[in-house]
């Protein structure tokens, strides 16, 4: 697959599932040997680290924090730097600060999320187990980037306002459910 970094960013941003899959595969084995040689030995954890790094990269692109003009290195270097940060976070938690010389990689700080890992897990499970039509509406809105008109047409709502009202109800229900379960940081 011959895609430039900009083309890859566009593919991820536009949720081109085929190309996202190919980009995931493209760097997988190289990432493995890179991290295994320097920082990590366990194969199972390595897969988790790569998948987390790849999802962080995609999210940065989805949220437009990483785009054609903010990318200062190659996309591969960026992805590897995210992976190294993840490994160092794990090592830090384990108390082994075996810092590798990674001067040639950009320093990518994981942005402070409003929630800790446990809360993220609770939110993830709530989204996974959402019933219909809420799950489909949220996927169409936040993954497929469909407009109110498109959602209304595809899901047989009278008009875009009806679709938006349904989406609002779904989000409200989800938020109310989550507010009783998650703990905010002070």
């Amino acid at each position: 697959m011959e895609l430039s970094d900009n083309e890859m960013i566009t593919a991820i941003r536009s949720r081109n599932e085929f190309l996202i899959g190919k980009i995931y595969s493209l760097y997988r084995s190289e990432f493995y040997s890179f991290i295994r040689k320097r920082l990590w030995k366990s194969e199972d954890v390595l897969l988790d680290i790569y998948q987390d790094a790849f999802m962080i990269l995609c999210n940065k692109i989805f949220e437009n924090k990483l785009n054609e003009s903010t990318l200062k290195s190659s996309l591969k270097t960026y992805l590897f730097a995210v992976g190294i940060n993840l490994v160092q976070n794990i090592n830090r938690k384990k108390g082994s600060l075996n810092k590798e010389n990674i001067d040639d990689l950009p320093d990518i700080m994981e942005e402070e999320s409003g929630f800790d890992e446990e809360n993220d897990r609770i939110i993830q499970i709530a989204v996974y187990s959402m019933g219909e039509p809420c799950h489909t509406i949220l996927v169409k809105q936040y993954w497929e980037d469909k407009s109110g008109d498109e959602i209304a047409a595809e899901m047989n709502y009278k008009n875009k306002d009806a679709a938006k009202t349904q989406k609002y109800k779904c989000i409200k229900k989800l938020k109310n459910e989550l507010k009783t379960r998650i703990v905010y940081r002070s």
Binding site: N59, F115, D120, L138
Partner: peptide, 28 residues
């Protein structure tokens, strides 16, 4: 808090879809 929660929900929706793609790719 509202913004954080909504952002976390959006991330969770996208994560679910990314995990589906990754799972499919891992199978391949």
């Amino acid at each position: 808090k509202e913004v954080d929660l909504q952002q976390a929900i959006i991330k969770a929706v996208r994560k679910e879809q990314l995990e589906r793609i990754i799972k499919r790719e891992e199978n391949v």
